[in-house]
Computed example of a mutant assay.
Amino acid sequence: MDVKETVRLWSVRRLYGTADRTVRALDGVTASFHPGTMTAVMGPSGSGKSTLLHCAAGLDRPTEGKVIIDGTDLGELDETGLTLLRRERVGFVFQAFNLVSALTAEQNVALPLKLAGRPIAPAEARAALAEVGLADRAGHRPSGLSGGEQQRVAIARALITRPAVLFADEPTGQLDTKTSRQVLGMLRDLVDNQAQTVIMVTHDPVTASYADRVLFLADGRVVDEFTSGVTAESVAARMANLEAVAS
């Protein structure tokens, strides 16, 4: 594996169902993701976007093929090893924020460290909140935060362990246009200034336009890739073609 790759998928297949009724959610996907890059994964409904994200993040095991994160082959890990790798090397941001309502923003951010049994320095969680522009909201619970603030807390929580890769599943799906741009701008800054690797699934061409690269999936395969000239208009046009074929 190229040492510069943060994540590598080799001929990944993910099958569901039985021999009589098999669904190929992923059908031989090979792709690599490098430090300091943001990749958007797009495709029609049922194209395999979420399955790709889950297999790449170690949340689901592929039926065939390899997934390598930060030099570690996930297929060689047992469930305990996989859990530890996800805690230490993988960050995940969900559309629904998934914050614990009874905890403050600071406590939510520190939660991965607590689950990993690591010492928790309050200054560390506060510094993570400061990185996402929420230094003054550390004592607020989720109910006292706006949707955009909750998503920024979720991003700070995902980054507290300094993961090799940050996965995001529709990270702006519940946000208005202005707040979405703020969150995407923050992710872009993490990529450009801290060499963070970001891989996100989105259905929105504007969100995808913040990425360096767009992978297009259809029927579980990578069918196209934009690595330059990524604009909302070019992405929307390509998606329209894919959806027309899928319908």
Rank of each mutant, 00 (worst) to 15 (best):
143 S>D: 15
74 L>A: 05
31 A>H: 10
9 L>Y: 06
121 A>Y: 00
149 E>A: 08
210 Y>F: 15
24 R>W: 10
19 A>L: 14
25 A>S: 12
159 L>S: 06
41 V>I: 15
140 H>N: 13
97 F>C: 02
149 E>N: 09
117 G>F: 06
105 A>M: 03
131 E>V: 10
14 R>T: 09
217 L>C: 01
137 R>K: 13
229 G>F: 10
235 V>R: 08
146 S>M: 13
201 V>D: 02
69 I>W: 09
108 N>Q: 12
171 P>D: 08
22 T>Y: 08
220 G>W: 03
224 D>K: 04
108 N>R: 12
56 A>F: 03
130 A>M: 14
197 T>G: 07
15 L>V: 14
215 L>I: 10
130 A>G: 15
189 D>A: 14
104 T>Y: 05
85 L>Q: 00
78 D>H: 06
198 V>E: 01
115 L>A: 04
234 S>A: 14
117 G>Q: 05
102 A>V: 15
56 A>S: 11
226 F>T: 02
185 G>W: 06
103 L>D: 05
198 V>K: 01
161 T>Y: 08
212 D>G: 13
12 V>P: 01
216 F>Y: 10
104 T>R: 07
104 T>F: 04
200 M>V: 04
153 V>L: 14
24 R>V: 08
135 A>G: 15
239 M>W: 05
217 L>D: 00
193 N>K: 14
231 T>D: 11
97 F>S: 01
